[in-house]
């Protein structure tokens, strides 16, 4: 019985092992480069949120993990704070960069660092039409998602991409959590 089982499936097991090692090897070789690309992207998004002359400084906790970024403008005054925040989307984790002003009273905007949302629907969270709603939002209260509304009014109501609101709500929840984290920094 057992021998029969192995005779049938040894190739699958052997191939899984070899292919697994192959993928792990390629990942090992490319990991650094991929991480480097992500850092470059973070810097680029930071500059587009805070202006080209801004400089960001990573604030780390005792374990050396980055907690948030303190961003200064060209006169060396604090322009605001930014944090990388992650949460569950529809298909995969969504990773955002959330930026607030220096008093954490207003959002300066968000940037999408990573998303695997449904092409054509959920991935519209990357579009300016959706993202720009967060620019200037008051964040004393939590942001909420509504289905119908005007995207151009600056308020704490975020108009979802479509009537199916999973991706829009995911983004809004991530932003709310990030704001709490920045406020209690």
């Amino acid at each position: 019985m057992l021998i029969q089982f192995f005779r049938q499936s040894w190739l699958v097991m052997a191939a899984a092992l070899v292919f697994g090692l192959l993928v792990a090897g390629v990942h090992g070789v490319l990991e650094e480069r991929i991480a480097g690309n992500a850092t470059l992207k973070l810097e680029r998004e930071m500059k587009s949120l805070f202006g080209q002359d801004s400089a960001s400084e990573a604030i780390r906790d005792e374990n050396g993990e980055i907690r948030y970024y303190k961003v200064k403008d060209k006169t060396n005054a604090i322009a605001g704070y930014a944090i990388v925040a992650e949460g569950s989307g529809f298909a995969d984790k969504i990773k955002l960069l959330v930026a607030t002003d220096e008093k954490t009273e207003k959002l300066l905007g968000i940037a999408v660092l990573k998303t695997n949302e449904t092409p054509g629907f959920g991935d519209k969270i990357k579009k300016d039409k959706f993202k720009n709603q967060f620019v200037g939002c008051p964040i004393k209260e939590e942001l909420s998602v509504i289905i119908r509304g005007d995207r151009d009014t600056v308020d704490s109501e975020i108009v979802s991409i479509t009537g199916a609101t999973i991706s829009s709500e995911a983004v809004t929840d991530i932003v709310n959590d990030a704001v709490v984290k920045l406020r209690n920094k």
Partner: peptide, 17 residues
């Protein structure tokens, strides 16, 4: 299994380069 392996590799290569 074979296709999945090479798709993952192609994805990693694209992400890197």
């Amino acid at each position: 299994l074979t296709i999945a392996t090479f798709v993952t590799i192609a994805d990693l290569l694209l992400q890197a380069f």
